[in-house]
Amino acid sequence: MSRAVSIVIPAMGDVLLLEFALASLARAQALRRGDDEILVVDDSGEGLLGPWLMEHFPTVRCIHNSENIGFARALSAGVQAAKHELVFAMNSDVRVRAGFLEPLEAALGDEKVFAAVPRILLDGREGAIESIVEVRLENFIARAAQPLLERRATDAALGKLGAVDCPLPFPIGGAFLFRRSIFQQLGGFDPAFEPFYLEDLDLGWRAWKAGLECRYVASSVVEHHHRGTIGALLPESVVLAAIERNRLLFTWKHLDDSALLEAHVRALARRVAEALVDEDRNFLSALCLALEDRLSAAAFAGARTGSSAPSWERVQRACDPRQSR
């Protein structure tokens, strides 16, 4: 029997997008019994969504922030306000397909699983699975990759990746089901990664280090009709700086192998010189920002230095999605 789920949707002011998302939820929920709830966290900072929801989706709860607080904090606020233990985090540009929740719930039946991730199809295209992710060290800097979006048609090495359930290093923040209590135990999203990007990677990695898992559930399907909200609102240089800075912060926070760390710092030094020569200002800006934010990121260094926590290498091996189960 299905358990009740709180569906939390942080949203800016795009009601058209939200309408599609809520409509898809309404269709999917019609097939369910139980006490599911939908919470929309109005992050427009102007209370734009409350009246609209009241008129069009009166059963949807709306949490209004007096100012824009960003995706991570908005989602955390929704989690805080959720009534149920199981929370489905959902972006406003996601549309669910019927029966998406049950397989995710089933995956969470395993106590070790912290988060269950549906098959997220980019723009509804069957082969374009966003939720299959892996973490690599590129030039000794962590990078979250989406191999099924990067692959070529002839890349046979990917095999049946995405067709079967598998471990994931982290749940993509746009759509995943998780346990609220564990989310809170883990401390939620790390504000060091604000304003955006890679906070979900950090959350997932922490879950793995805590002995939990994130799992991809192939039979649960949602669509991500990407609108690039952040990209549309911010200059590209800001977006790139956020991504690159957070990659560095994540690396410093979680890379615990001294040899890799030393290689990482040496690579950074080399990269600084290369960036100077190549006029790669994006990297230098990101590094400067990351170095400024190092102290706050270091507050979580306990996760790295904890003696009982699994090492980077162990986590990386354990969460490799190519080891499908």
Partner: peptide, 15 residues
Amino acid sequence: PASARPFAERVLELE
């Protein structure tokens, strides 16, 4: 967005 402004200002300053 207000949540991104402090970060964006830092980026701008670096530019």
